[in-house]
Each structure stands twice: as C-alpha cells, then as structure tokens.
Amino acid sequence: MKKKAPSVESGGFNRQDCSGSLPDGFYDLNPSAPYFSSASAPNFPYLDLGICREPQVKSLIRSHSKDMYRLLEKVHFDGKYYRVKCVSSGDWEYCWDLAVRIQFFGKMQGIVLYPKRLVSRDEKKIVYRSVILVNPYQLWDQTLVARFWNLQERIEFLIARILFHECIHLMISLGNTLPSDFGNTDIYLEFRRMLEISNSNKLISEFHEVQFRLWNLSLFGAEGSESEQTLLERVQEIYEFLINEKYSNQKTGKVFHSSSNNEKLARKYAWVAGVKAGGDVQVSRNVWKVEIRRLSIALRRLYKGIDTLLR
C-alpha cells in the first residue's frame, strides 16, 4: 500500500475526534501541569489519579499491541510533548510528538486532537503534534466495580482501555500521514482492510445508502458558498470517520472484553456525523433528526455487513 506525505505547502491541523471535541485552548497543554489531575467525583471528593501506576497501564497495552506500546513507551502521562516517531523521506524529516494527560472533564471518555503541523523550511523538518486526553469518569460503572474491587487496578484498567481506543485513532492518522510504508502498523493495515471491505461490491447497496444520507446531511449543514466538490470531500471524510469508529470500538472491545454493539454504535455516530456535516443550518431541527435516524439505520446495516464479510 502506497501513501504520500502531505505537501509542504499545506499547513494547519485537522482535529478529528471520535469521542468529542474541546476548544482550541486545550490543544497546547500547560507544561507545568501536574502529573495527574485531581477532581471531585462521586463518593471520592478529592480523588487523586496519581495512584495510577503508569508502567502498569503500559504493560496492559503492551500485552495486546507491541506497535502501540512502542508509540507510548517514552511518553509520560503529564501533558508534555514527547517525540514518538521520526522518519526521513527525500530531503525532509517527518516527526510526531505526542502528549497524554489524564483528568476528569465531563462525560467524554477520551479525546484525541491531531495533528497540529509545524513546518521548518530551514531545517527541512515537519513536526506533527498530537494530544490525547483521558477521562476515567466511569470508575464507578457497576461492571467495572464487580470486576475490579481494588480502586487502583480499576483506574489502571480503565485508563488503559481508553488510551488504547484513542491510540488506535492516532495510529490510523500516522498511517495516513507519514510517507509510504513508515506508518504501516498492524492496526493501520487492519483498519484499511475494513475500509476496503466497506467499499466493496458486496456491500454496494449499504455503501450507497450511507453515502446518500451523508450527502443530505452535508447539504443540510452547508453554509451556501460551498462547492459540490467540497461537499463530496466532506462526505468521504465523514464516511471514513464512521468506519474508523467501527474498527476502533470493535478492536478495543475485543481486547478489553467489553461489548461493541452495532446498533448502539450506529445510533451514537450517526449523530456525530450529522454534527460533523454542519448541523441543521438549512432545515428544521425535526427534519435533521429524521435524516439522522435514517443514517443510523443505514449505518447499522453497513456495520452488520462488514462483520459478516470479516468472519
């Protein structure tokens, strides 16, 4: 599989998150931030997440993915950037910096922000900076409590599971961004296989139905000055996001023995897709919601077809 590094002229960053999004102010984290944040939580007014043992979290991840462990091996969970990968292609060097921070913030389990792109023409170097925020707010989930009575073990398991999920998105981004062959991890190749299956002739009707619903939602969210080509690119980007989420949730569920239900995934990410498409700028909220439900049904069928072909 061949990929090309993005042109040097393009800049900025693309924030694509499956779990949620944060204001830009969260992107460049405070270098003096504490190792772990403490916060009020049910039954634990000042729970200190510092009881989590970082080596134990990494050990849990290493047992399931050596590629991911290598990505995280030198990264401390303190919100500071660490260089995790550096490759050369032609006269240019491509580097990836990663920051991981663990804290309570609302009800999103995790967020990955990627990549902020910094170009140095003098050094002929392009640096991508990514941030993963982990929010272990589900510490008191009944299933987890029944499985791990020890609070420390429960925190470490939950952080490992969330971090694993978010790192899948990051590794897919690495595979799509770095020069050919440098980002081809097992996770990236598995995702590409799922994406290819979702585009195959065996799922042509399911594929077209999802694309049609995404096109409608993109029209609903269009500002009016956007070209047809721009809308088509948005549809394709959101479609790949939906397959990305299918793979990430399925992979994480298999590794950490948690359920990955197609109906639930389709319902959740159909709504996220509608938001990514621009919302209900051109139509009433009720019309938008109807199209979201139709996308959810189409997406569930597509996900089920993918599972059938992957067996």
Results as ranks from 00 to 15, higher is better:
R267V: 08
S260K: 11
G253S: 09
N249Y: 15
K268F: 09
Q282S: 06
K251E: 10
V255P: 02
W271H: 12
G279N: 06
G274C: 04
V272K: 12
T252L: 00
S258D: 10
L265D: 07
V272N: 07
R267W: 13
V255C: 04
Y269G: 04
N249G: 09
L265V: 00
A277L: 01
R267A: 14
S284M: 01
V275W: 06
G279F: 07
S284A: 05
G279W: 08
N262W: 03
V283P: 04
A270T: 03
G278H: 03
V283R: 00
R267T: 14
V255N: 00
V275E: 13
T252R: 09
N262F: 04
G278T: 02
K264R: 13
N262Y: 04
N261C: 08
F256V: 09
K254N: 15
Q250I: 08
S260H: 13
G278A: 01
V275H: 08
K268S: 08
V281E: 07
S248I: 11
V283T: 08
D280M: 01
K268M: 07
Q282W: 02
V275Y: 04
A266D: 04
A277P: 02
G278V: 02
F256N: 04
S260G: 04
A277S: 14
K276V: 01
Y269P: 00
N249Q: 14
Y269S: 05
Y269V: 05
V283H: 01
S248M: 11
A266T: 00
Y247Q: 06
N261S: 07
Y269C: 01
G278F: 02
Y247M: 12
V283C: 00
S284G: 15
S260P: 03
S284E: 11
Q282A: 04
G274D: 03
G278K: 05
R267E: 14
K276G: 02
A266L: 01
V283M: 00
Y247P: 04
